[in-house]
Design a protein around this nucleic acid. Structure first.
Lengths: 242, 242
DNA sequence: ACAAAAGGTGACGGTTTTTGGCACCGTTCT
DNA sequence: AGAACGGTGCCAAAAACCGTCACCTTTTGT
C-alpha cells in the first residue's frame, strides 16, 4: 500500500511543476527511475492522462482534466447525496445534472450489487413534487439527524418504524407504521407510512418526527402507494401547504 | 492487492450472515485464522465498526451503518456534486444536509490541499439567490455540457473565457470576458464576467452560451463582485426574470 | 472447578510481491 | 555523432505478506 502514497506524490509534482522529467521525479520522490515508470503505467491504467514528449528536451505533462479523487462514504452519506441531486433535478433545472449523474452512476457502480438493488428500491419510493411558488419557505423546521438511517434500514429490512409525532395542532402521539415512501414537496419533506391500526396511508412531516427507531422482529410488505393527483392520499397535504 | 479482495469477501459474509466466527470466515475464505484477524484489524482501521463478543458462544458482528464505499470521481464531477448540494441547501431546506455535508467534507478531505483551496475559491464565487415565486420555471434551456469544466479551469488559472452568446433579443455576439462568479437564481443560472472592453460586469444566462473555451496566455485578476442588493450589477436581471 | 470455545497478540520462517539496477531500444535536438 | 529524453525486459535483492505455533484473557457449558 506504499505505492499509493508515492503515486499521489507523483501526481502532486506533475500538477505543481506543469511539466517534469522522470529523472527529476525519481530524485524528488526518493526512488528509482524504474519505479517511477511503473507508477506512471499504473496511473495511466487508472485513468490519468499523462502526455509524454519523447526525445531530448522532452518530459511529462499531466492533463488536469483527468485528475480523479477517491472518496470513502458511508451508505447514509451516499443516500443523502443521491436524494440531494435527485431532488435538485426535479425541483429546478440543474445545469450540470449530467455531470452529477455520471458522478452518481459511478457511486452506484462502486457499490456491491445487492446494495444497488436496495438503493434503487429506495429511490423508487422517493416522490418529488413540483416546486410550488405558493409555499411558505420558512415553514420547515430541523429534521432529526437519525431519521434517514432509520428510514433506510426500516424500509430495506421491511421492519416497522416507531416514532413520536407532533401534529399540526401540537398534539403528540406515538406512531408505529410501515415506512412506504418519502414525499418531497420542497421545502417540505414527508414520510409516507401505512398505519395498520387505521388501515390507511398517513403522511408525517419529517420535522415533526422525533425519536425514530426500527421495531425489531416486525415484517411488512411494500404496498403500491398511489401517487396520481386524483387518488393521492395526501392531497390534503398539498392543499394545506398552500 | 489480493488482500482487498479477501477483505471484501469478509465484509460480504458478515453482512450476509449477520454474525460469524473467525474460524468460519477462515474456512469460507480459504485462509488462516491469523490472516483473518489481521484483515479485521485493517478493516477496523479503515472505519468499519465490527463488534466482537469474546468468550464461548461469541463471534463477530458488523455494524451495518459503518459500511463504506469508495468512489473515484473527476474534478468536474466533484464540482457538480458540490454545487448541486450547495444550491439545494440554499434553494430549499434540505433535511439531510448534515449528512450530505459530511459526505462533501470527506470529498474535500480526500482532495489534495491545493485543490481544496481552489474549490473554496470557486465556491465563494457561487452566489445563490432566494427562490422567487415570480420566475418562469420553464424558461431555462439546456446548458452546454462543456461550460462547467471550462469555467472551472478558466477561473482557477485566471484565463479569459471566450464564447458565443445569444441575448434576449436573439442577437448573437462573440464575447471574451474575465470569469468572475456564478449566479444562481433557480431555475436560472448566470455566468458573471468582467468585460474589459465595456469596463463593467456583465451577466450571461448559461443556456444562451455556446462554444465556450479558455483563452490561453491571458491573465486577469479576480475582482470583488459586489453582491449587495443595492449595488448588485445585475439587479436588472432580477427585474427581468420577474 | 474445569474444559471448551471464542477473540486477540507476538514471534519466526517461508513465500510472494515489490523494488532497484542494468542493458538496451527508439526518438529528438544540438 | 552524441546527449537527453521516454520506454521495455530481465533478474536479483529487499520488503511485505502469510501461515504456523505458542500463549493469553474471557465466557459459557457440564
Amino acid at each position: 500500500m506504499k505505492s499509493r502514497i508515492r503515486q499521489d506524490a507523483i501526481i502532486r509534482m506533475l500538477r505543481r511543476n506543469g511539466t517534469s522529467t522522470i529523472q527529476a521525479l525519481a530524485e524528488e520522490v526518493g526512488t528509482s527511475r524504474r519505479t517511477i515508470l511503473r507508477d506512471l503505467s499504473s496511473l495511466r491504467d487508472e485513468g490519468y492522462v499523462i502526455h509524454s514528449d519523447v526525445g531530448r528536451g522532452g518530459g511529462l505533462q499531466l492533463d488536469p482534466q483527468s485528475i480523479r479523487t477517491t472518496i470513502s462514504l458511508s451508505v447514509p452519506e451516499v443516500f443523502a447525496l443521491l436524494i440531494s441531486v435527485a431532488a435538485m433535478r426535479a425541483a429546478g433545472n440543474l445545469p450540470f445534472s449530467e455531470l452529477a449523474d455520471t458522478g452518481l452512476a459511478k457511486i452506484e457502480k462502486s457499490l456491491p450489487a445487492d446494495r444497488v438493488k436496495d438503493l434503487r428500491a429506495l429511490l423508487e419510493r422517493l416522490h418529488i413534487g413540483q416546486l410550488s411558488p405558493l409555499q411558505n419557505l420558512s415553514d420547515m423546521g430541523k429534521i432529526d439527524r437519525g431519521l434517514l438511517p432509520t428510514f433506510e434500514t426500516a424500509f430495506l429490512q421491511r421492519e416497522f418504524i416507531r416514532f413520536a409525532y407532533r401534529d399540526a395542532k401540537g398534539q403528540r402521539t406515538q406512531r408505529e407504521v410501515e415506512p412506504q415512501a418519502m414525499l418531497i414537496l420542497p421545502p417540505l419533506w414527508y414520510l409516507v407510512g401505512w398505519d395498520p391500526e387505521r388501515e390507511g396511508f398517513r403522511h408525517f412531516r419529517m420535522d415533526r418526527i422525533s425519536n425514530s427507531e426500527t421495531v425489531a422482529g416486525t415484517r411488512f410488505r411494500r404496498r403500491h402507494v398511489p401517487f396520481e393527483e386524483d387518488v393521492c392520499p395526501y392531497s390534503e397535504v398539498l392543499k394545506r401547504t398552500g
